[in-house]
Nucleic acid binder design. Structure first.
Length: 158
DNA sequence: GCCAACGTTGGC
DNA sequence: GCCAACGTTGGC
């Protein structure tokens, strides 16, 4: 086993699709992380993410983007069924059940935090390397370093 | 393999 | 709604 694999992740969700409240209200507070249509993000799920990894739950494309909760990876990957559904906005005509392109895994919400917005995250030098703070960043799943994870855990309690 | 055109993301 | 940045597509 690769002990240097990332153990922490930041995952973006549009609150109009699945907010932290939606996730907490789901059975077992667990939701299938559907709709990832980016190869790099898919590969993180497939190759690096493991059950139990910590997740920063991030609200994007909304009035107050930022970290809103803590979650954990709750399953390995399986094909994302929405890729096969012509009625889904995530339908991918180039995919097929025999050769699925897109994967999902389950995410279990653990708790809400106070909203830690982008401006606040940028105030902290130890977070300056976070992918979500880089200009032009669009990846919906990004690795988080342990010092970043710890610093955000402390911020969340303030 | 190059690269222009296009579609999407996502903060503001 | 704007628009910069990025990923994907497809002609050549």
């Amino acid at each position: 086993m690769n002990t240097s694999a990332p153990r922490y992740w930041l995952m973006k969700s549009e609150p109009s699709e699945c907010s932290i409240d939606d996730a907490l209200a789901a059975p077992h507070a667990t939701v299938p992380w559907t709709g990832v249509r980016n190869y790099q993000a898919r590969n993180f799920m497939r190759d690096a993410m493991q059950v139990g990894d910590g997740v920063l739950f991030y609200h994007s494309s909304c009035p107050e983007p930022g970290i809103v909760g803590i979650a954990r990876v709750a399953s390995g990957t399986r094909p994302d069924p929405t890729q096969f559904d012509p009625a889904s906005p995530y339908f991918d005509p180039k995919s097929s059940p025999g050769q699925p392109r897109w994967l999902l895994l389950d995410i279990q919400a653990l708790r809400k935090t106070r909203l830690i917005g982008l401006a606040e995250l940028r105030e902290h030098a130890e977070l300056a390397g976070m992918r979500v703070l880089q200009r032009g960043n669009r990846l919906s799943i990004t690795p988080v370093e342990e010092p970043e994870w710890r610093a955000i855990g402390e911020l969340a309690q303030q």
